[in-house]
Design a binder for these strands. Structure first.
Lengths: 137, 137
DNA sequence: TATTGTTATACTCTATAACTATA
DNA sequence: TATAGTTATAGAGTATAACAATA
């Protein structure tokens, strides 16, 4: 298949388009993209350190801290020292955090479906399969 | 097809991976990503205004200016006032600019092929086809 | 008065390194 | 001494608005 632009440019533009779609949804919940990434990172279970969470979502641990401060203060995550090693913070979603995540996720999924609507079913499946295979972590 | 993470996260991560692959190639030529985007934008022919070029590569016109200054000074682009409207700058690649672009493009293409190597032919074609369909402009 | 390009500036994002508290 | 988390800070990237030159 002949390509005109490089893959990087195409992926970059699609990323911007997806971000533009997600931005108003996140703004309605007053959450940043990284805050939403944190909720997603904790969706499948608690984490034992902030560094592990940061690595799992591809963020720097230092820039996660104000995000975690905010999410904790708003009651969307739990964050308490591990009694067996008080350097460590145990992280998990609260019920409110889980609900917020699910609500945002549903809206984002709708937006994605709209964007993907014009793509034939077979290509759509191959596209997502390839994306999963090529995205690190 | 069931998705675990949202499309945005997957596209974002793939974008970072592609950028990491391109960075050392561009560094060898001492060019930024935007400088390369400019060369790509002029590859298929000259442009009549800087604003048009900026729009065509999805950049802000103000942040293109230092990039154009540098490319012009290094003899990779031509940039001269339109005699019929001296507000306008006519933009085009020099021979050196075209050669530089082709050299970088070939290296980037190799890097992409490596990344795509593990993806089955059919999926790879559907992936690129879908990317072209979904990337604005 | 409108348009192209330019400059200045302020704002955000990000990474680095230094610091604290525990172990 | 090593590790988890935190803070401070500097650097890069970006957007906004003001400005100069043409039309």
């Amino acid at each position: 298949m002949e390509r005109t632009d490089d893959l990087g440019a195409l992926v970059f533009r699609l990323g911007r388009r997806l971000l533009a779609m997600e931005q108003p949804i996140l703004a309605r919940h007053e959450l940043s993209m990284w805050a939403y990434a944190v909720l997603t990172g904790l969706r499948d279970g608690p984490m034992r350190t902030q560094a592990a969470l940061a690595a799992s979502i591809g963020a720097d641990k230092t820039r996660l801290i104000p995000v975690l401060d905010d999410l904790q203060q708003r009651g969307l995550i739990e964050r308490e020292p591990d009694p067996t090693d008080r350097r460590v913070r145990l992280l998990g979603l609260t019920t409110a955090g889980r609900q917020t995540h699910q609500s945002i996720e549903a809206d984002i999924r709708s937006g994605e479906d709209e964007i993907l609507a014009s793509v034939p079913e077979q290509d759509r499946e191959a596209f997502i399969r390839t994306l999963l295979a090529l995205s690190p972590r």
